[in-house]
Amino acid sequence: MAEIKTMAKKSWFLPAILGIVAIAFPPFLGGYFQHLLILMMMWITMATAWNLLGGYTGCVSFGHCVFFGLGAYGGGLLYLHWGISPWWGMIAGPLLAIIAGIPIGLVTFRLRGPYFALSMLALGETFRIVFTNWVSVLGGACGIVSSRTFGVEKLPYYYIALVIAALSVYVVYRLMHSKYGYYFVSIREDQDAAEGLGIPTTRYKMYALIPSALFTGLAGAVYMNYMAYIDPEVVFSLAGISIMMILAVMVGGAGTLGGPILGAVIFVLLNEGIRAAVGPISYLIFMVIACLLIMFLPDGIIGDWAKIKRAFRGKKPVYVGGE
């Protein structure tokens, strides 16, 4: 917590500069970079949302693709069954994610640590299989091809994604600077102690889950509208969505405000940069970099900032587990 405050004190103007750049700069970029920026905003939203539940509250979910997928399918199903504009999915998707999130939370919050992680993983897989098989209601494996509103124009998608990303960061910031934030962190640090102090942990975990599901769902709805195509393999993907969300947060720094943002930016740039540069071995290189980052900066770039600074100052870095 102290960390967040010092960060905020030191660089309160940073969001402003970033915001101005994020608003004013993209119109000058080519379509390809605008596309990457849209993905980046989407991943910032998802990473920030995951971080609220995983990083701050300590409930590491390996199944956030459930909320992403439901967010995407909200609009998709409206379009599939009633031909309604998938933009209504921006409301229906997150709503669906929250509606599903509440019972999921009630069930899985009884579990802790790795058991919680695994049960979320199982739920993610279950959703994927059910959405693949239930053709009449959910469209099945063929997925849903919807219409695209803006056609070639990418900027509207970008600004929508930007607003959602900014909103998610703002909401998490506010939450973490309220009493909720302190409760969340206390649950992460020691759940038994938090319970002993009279914090209803399940309820507070739920308070973290709902915004988390909401914003992940919103990101899913943006994805749906932007890509105009979803199928269960893609939006309920364990390796492609759930895991990558965690990876982005952990690379940047779990339990920090800037971590998910930085992590998502690095994630998109690194992923696409390596892919464009080296071709088919890119995934291997990406994974090697991920391994090294986790091994040497287990708290992420922002979380281990001190360690990085020390290393750059020429002092011998103290590697964790090395002594």
Partner: peptide
């Protein structure tokens, strides 16, 4: 200062919201 940061953050969101409805050519 935290509050100031908050206000600025809010401003960013608001500006973003204004920039949203396709006023791209005006913005630049």
């Amino acid at each position: 200062k935290v509050k100031l940061g908050l206000v600025l953050g809010l401003a960013v969101v608001l500006v973003a919201a204004f920039a949203l409805p396709g006023c791209v050519p005006e913005a630049a």
